[in-house]
Design a protein around this nucleic acid. Sequence first.
RNA 1: GCGGGCGUGGUGGAAUGGUAGACACAGGAGACUUAAAAUCUCCAGGCCGCAAGGCCGUGCCGGUUCGAGUCCGGCCGCCCGCACCA
Length: 900
Amino acid sequence: MAYSAAEIEAKWQKAWDEAGLFRATRSADRPKYYVLEMFPYPSGRIHMGHVRNYTMGDVIARHKIATGHSVLHPMGWDAFGMPAENAAMASGGHPKDWTYGNIADMRAQMKPLGLSIDWSREFATCDPEYYGQQQALFLDFLEKGLVYRKNAVVNWDPVDMTVLANEQVENGRGWRSGAEVERRELTQWFFRISDFSEELLEALDSLDDWPAKVRTMQENWIGKSRGLQFAFGLNDGPDGHDRVEVYTTRPDTLLGASFIGISPDHPLARQLERERADVAEFCAEARRGGTTEEALEKAEKLGFDTGLTCRHPFDNAWELPVYIANFILMDYGTGAIFGCPAHDQRDLDFARKYDLPVISTFAPAENEGFPLPEDGGEAYVPPKTETVIYVRGFAGDTEQTGLAAIDAAIDFCEANGVGQGVTKFRLRDWGLSRQRYWGCPIPVVHCDACGVVPEKKKNLPIELPYDEDGNPIDFSIPGNPLDRHPSWRDCACPACGAPARRETDTMDTFVDSSWYYARFTAPRADTPTVMEDAAYWMNVDQYIGGIEHAILHLLYSRFFARAMHICGHLPEKAREPFDALFTQGMVTHEMYLGAEMNEEAKGSRAKFYFPEEVCRFEYEGEPVALLRSFVLQRSVDPSDTSKLRDLWDVHYIDDQVGAEDPKLKVIPSAKMSKSKKNVVDPVNIIGAFGADTARWFVLSDSPPERDVEWTASGAEAAHKHLTRVYRIVDALVQDTGTGTPEADETLLREMHRTIHEVTGGVESFGFNAAIAKLYAFTNTLAKSNAGADAKRQAATALAQLMAPMTPHLAEELWHLLGHEGLITAAPWPIADDAMLVSDTVTLPVQVNGKRRAEISVPVDMSKSEVEKAALALEAVQRAMDGAAPKKVIVVPGRIVNVVI
RNA sequence: GCGGGCGUGGUGGAAUGGUAGACACAGGAGACUUAAAAUCUCCAGGCCGCAAGGCCGUGCCGGUUCGAGUCCGGCCGCCCGCACCA
């Protein structure tokens, strides 16, 4: 019999189905384990990243099943979002049909992987049963004041024609469309996530099993700072403006203030803009600059002297000029700053440009040790920690260290009525309104008489209309089709019954993914969750997904879990929903980049080629490639490297291939992307080698948190190995040989060591190391002189240890070896500690830290005897060269080091 | 600028402060075969040497230690996140 993945895999998947092994059930006597991979967006195709993600989760789930846990391992679809609408716009059809079609396709591609998923719990976020419960949550949030409506300046994506949350703007561009966002003033719904800033920040410390990187990123995003908020009195301001509120984290530099700066969007600037043409001109100019990183770096720091002055809070006679400056953000603090050029580089640059005074506040009388910025010098930015600084003018020139100085400054200001210490967060409330069709409708109604009225819960779900009076909804016109849909939009007010209008905005799709993990615990319930189920299954014991969700999805989910707890939908402990988080790396692949001549542009642009379109070779030590079509056209054997080199050298002289440049750059490892033509389709791999090979490969070679490079040779090697294991075990079935007791013992000791190491690897995301150990053990087994019984015992353990990674093959081996039932249901093997230690041990012997010899000694030999034996070794004597040992270090079971 | 991470053979990568390079890919030699494929065996960090063996070696410099890829300090390089944040 030969190894046939297709046959084996279909057979055992059927057997698992029939046994109902993956159906999650609450159990009184088994511990529960909830493993979850971030659910996919139904794009229509699974990719290698999915395979890697779900395989990792599957290894954990299967290991937990084998160790007697009651496991919940569900799968669903993050199914609302723009691509469905874009597809509808591009090629007709309806987002719903497109989405459900894709889900069916992807499920069909995913099932052959043999994942231990409880498919009975599957749902899509676009199922009315799901988003209806989401609407119920929204109404509960509304009642508890966790969501509210306000008029606000928002980020508008002009391409997707919708609003974006702050988190969804990257370098001034929409996270999805890449378009530069505009600022618009709209009435929008917001989640009160900022009320939870402190809690979300502090609780990060309890997330021990989260990557430190993710915690740091969230910490920075929440952005806590402590400072002083106070006002400068404004002289002769326009009506209603007699002061300028300022927030500063460096109140210790207040005596170094030399100007006031306000944002062009500051109310005072807006007022002046209306009154004065010169101000209007400057503000328009200041707003024009882009918000991209490059633009900001290049942008000049511009200021406009309003001619107004402020009074310093410590000395009313001290006047400071008020500038409007283009680098001051209205969103942060109060939109106004005081400039302290002596201790801030940007302020110093500004002061030099506009000839403003530079006043040091940290200098003792003679400025000792605190250089004032000379012309061209840099600002002295006093460190917030450690350094001892003088706080001139506060509390009688006391000497304070770092943060204490800032606190002293705040205390002084509070005592003198000059403002108060405040804590600020960068985190803003989460705007959730989206002007799109394919999302969860916000369940409220606008009534002329009653205002904004929540929909009644019994009317939920408020379903998206599928068509309009029997005609498919038209997505060819930009904007939100719900706005143009009178029969859906127009309704009766739930409060007074008068004609009213439905809210036509839908929810941000990040809302959908902020609670799906909770829904999996009771996916068919007619309430968002069922407390009994949530209490049993929550929290997610292990969550696995990409680092790209470090802020958005994970922060929103943490907020949502808290909000759901407040509304009685989740138990207290689930306020942090994910006990452990693992962020896996990407699957990368080689990429071929060429230059395509562009006649019109009279230049060239990047063009990508499929790996099968190129011939690879080395040229001057660099990997390079030529177009295969070009090589064949010259009748050159693609495997003849020297001929390829010749072609590489001469092709410009004898160029008859037209505009295409046959020379290609090789990028050995790039993220798989359709447009870069370097995607490997899992379906093809599974077709060629089987799911077990794909699973084995994505787990081997690279640590799970790092990127793994897909190579054809690696995939083939994985398949060869699995075939070899099958062959070895298959041969064992007929084997009746007897071995020496020593050979049996050696093999079984190695077996226990392997059980020990692989178990450790599986439990700590050391999948690559576990696989390396399984390779090594396979080699040991293949070469062993042990008897058939010992070998079969070893092979059984091998199959069990491989089962989480290559479950189909493992079942087949289990069966070949004559075991009953399913390996998936068999208990995990346990290493016998007694077999992990041997009678003798080989120690390296060092002389002055350099290894000179090895010595094999009984494991219980005394230190002094080991020392004696080591010193007697010829190689050691030679290395000591007649010198007497000063000291001999013997670490039992580890090493001997002779110091001379 | 702030924060975090990483740097080991031709390649991916192993290594609780204790024999650096496990395991695999690519490579080389051989066996089997008419041949190829498949399979099996062996070699393989660099330099010197017939060999035994020796010297060097985990980005660079220094430190702690009997002993450092691992810990500490300082550089260099790369990657990631955040950022006109007051």
